[in-house]
Computed example of a mutant assay.
Amino acid sequence: MRQNTKLTAVAAATAALALGLTACGSSSDPASSGQGDEATASKPLVIGASPTPHADILNFVKTELAAKEGLKLEVKEFTDYVLPNTATQQGQIDGNFFQHKPYLDDFNQKNKTDIVPVVNVHLEPLGLYSKKHQALSDLKAGQTVAVPNDTTNEGRALHLLADNGLITLKEGVGTDAKLSDISDAKGLEFKELEAATLPRALNDVDAAVINGNYAIEADLEPSKDALALEKGEGNPYANFLAVKRGNEKDARIQKLAKLLNSPEVQKYIEDTYKGSVIPAFGTPQA
């Protein structure tokens, strides 16, 4: 009988404690209690990134700057443009650093995800490369140009080709241009490939439009090797730190955003990439 009374008392106390936690917010919810905030702040911040230059920049922050801000930073590398957003949406990582706004807008719309940019960091100029030709004028009718097959980067590639007189796009075509929007291909043939595979395809095509990070990974130097290169001024393709909506105010994210826009990171980008990657700090486009 005494044992039953003891168990009943314990159960009542447990229920009361649970009710109290429900009313006040559990400690696992950082937005609901100071203890939760402290617990979250002490956890490592895991950010997914493309290897170059994104992970390189993050690792510079990790080794040179993070400790001074009390930030524990972990960098998880991804080699594609889908998994970093999927992992961020599902909470497997805290955020990512690999993409620009047109790509994110398209991804969110197609995948019903809810990822938002936090702070711009840099621009990787998209370039046209070739192992067979030395100048734009060498590209002739009947030759093949490879372009990224994802919506936003393909549109970006086609605008680069149009800006350099290699093709003509239909009037009014926006950033989501596709091959069917070419009004005059001037005899060129096009091959759509996954962005990450484009450097490896250079031996099989006459030229390829390659994202800056993949060009660098392939030991191409955009500022010297590209037959044509995007201009940085007014470019909407700045790469940024991104998180699932609602996590923008996480103290760890705010610390990382501050560090990614610091003078030290600006110097690191300028000294390391020498124009192949350009600092593009500030607030992302709405």
Rank of each mutant, 00 (worst) to 15 (best):
F107V: 03
N111T: 12
N111E: 15
K112E: 15
T113Y: 05
N120H: 12
H122Y: 13
L123M: 12
E124N: 10
L128V: 06
Y129W: 04
S130L: 04
K132V: 01
S137C: 04
L139E: 02
L139G: 03
L139T: 03
L139N: 11
G142P: 08
G142M: 03
Q143D: 11
Q143W: 05
T144Y: 08
T144N: 08
A146R: 13
A146C: 04
V147Q: 08
V147I: 15
P148D: 14
D150M: 09
D150C: 02
T151R: 13
N153G: 01
N153Y: 15
N153Q: 15
G155E: 10
L158Y: 11
H159W: 03
L160A: 13
A162F: 13
N164M: 09
I167M: 00
T168S: 14
L169W: 08
K170W: 05
K170T: 10
G172K: 01
T175N: 06
L179W: 01
S180A: 15
S180C: 03
A185L: 05
G187N: 13
L188A: 08
F190E: 01
F190T: 13
F190Q: 07
E194P: 02
A195S: 14
A195Q: 03
A195F: 02
A196H: 12
A196I: 08
T197I: 06
L198S: 14
P199S: 11
L202N: 04
N203I: 08
N203Y: 06
D204H: 07
V205Y: 04
D206K: 09
D206E: 15
A207S: 00
V209K: 07
I210V: 14
Y214W: 15
A215Q: 08
A215I: 14
I216Y: 08
